[in-house]
């Protein structure tokens, strides 16, 4: 055993491509499965959410405009970076959840593979869910799915990494930008994933990650008028009604998901139909 003292990491938020502390100055304690101290991640506030939404809104235009090929490559790049740092993620999952090494490795592998799966959807979703509509008149008429704008999400508590990937990937692959609240009990995967994001080619503001308490942040997300969609997969079912009612103020599109499939991408896309005359 070495006598060397570890250099411990301060876990911060990830907003607009940088790692700020919460403006509230609040933190909470994350303990290991065995009860020992691991970290004091930020307890994000309403204002942190606001800042993240501003960053996400500003990033939307550019990310939405990026080609599908480009977005696919960037998601694939995330997978590459995650693969390269898999040991760190395995260790963190084990430390926080007490999972076996095999189980933790399985989750990281599935997370990498899931990113690759969604990356491949970037340039296929439009052709599969779009349409050329044979209208009764001299018009060219087509329907294409487009990103919705800024989407908020509550990541599930467990699995803390795979659950996060399942929230992030389908939302951003279509061109949305995202503010996601990480697993409260196990935020380490999310904050380390922010480092993966920061070192890949994802433009600043496309993915913003908060840590904190669902019951505090989810209602602010629901009522925020500049959030277009809300993935509440990670929120307890008994809270859904209140969140949906609050989200009605700007008719937010609110969904919770049971599986990973293309419907999850389409849920946060809007179909746009275009008409143009056909003539000389």
């Amino acid at each position: 055993m070495s006598n060397r003292i570890d250099v411990k990491k301060t876990y911060k938020l990830f907003i607009n491509g940088v790692f700020p502390r919460t403006e509230s100055g609040r933190t909470y304690e994350v303990k290991s499965a065995k009860g020992s101290f691991i970290a004091n991640p930020c307890l994000a506030s309403r204002k942190d959410l606001k800042d993240a939404v501003v960053a996400a809104r500003a990033a939307h235009h550019g990310w939405n405009k990026a080609t599908a090929y480009n977005k696919g490559q960037i998601l694939y790049r995330l997978a590459e970076m995650l693969e390269g740092r898999r040991a760190q993620f395995v260790d963190e999952i084990i430390a926080v959840t007490g999972a076996t090494k095999a189980k933790a490795e399985k989750e990281v592998s599935e997370s990498v593979d899931r990113l690759v799966w969604y990356a491949g959807w970037s340039d296929k979703i439009s052709s599969l869910s779009g349409a050329l509509n044979p209208v009764a008149g001299p018009y060219y008429n087509f329907t294409i799915p487009e990103s919705m704008g800024v989407v908020a999400a509550i990541a599930p508590e467990t699995p803390s990494l795979l659950g996060l990937i399942d929230v992030i990937a389908p939302i951003i692959v279509s061109g949305n930008t995202l503010v996601v609240l990480a697993s409260s009990k196990a935020p380490l995967s999310a904050m380390s994933f922010a480092e993966v994001i920061a070192t890949s080619d994802v433009p600043a503001g496309v993915i913003n990650i908060l840590t904190g308490m669902k019951d505090e942040i989810a209602p602010w997300m629901a009522s925020h008028m500049d959030i277009d969609g809300f993935d509440i997969t990670g929120l307890a079912t008994k809270k859904h009604a209140e969140i949906r009612a609050s989200g009605a103020e700007n008719l937010k599109r609110i969904f919770a998901f049971k599986s990973h499939d293309p419907a999850r991408i389409l849920a946060f896309m809007e179909a746009k139909t275009v008409w143009h005359p056909i003539g000389l």
């Binding site: 001299p138 018009y139 056909i278 003539g279 000389l280």
Partner: peptide
Amino acid sequence: LGSLSGVDQVGAD
């Protein structure tokens, strides 16, 4: 002649 606006056939029809 170049300053003239175009005519949309379907609209005119």
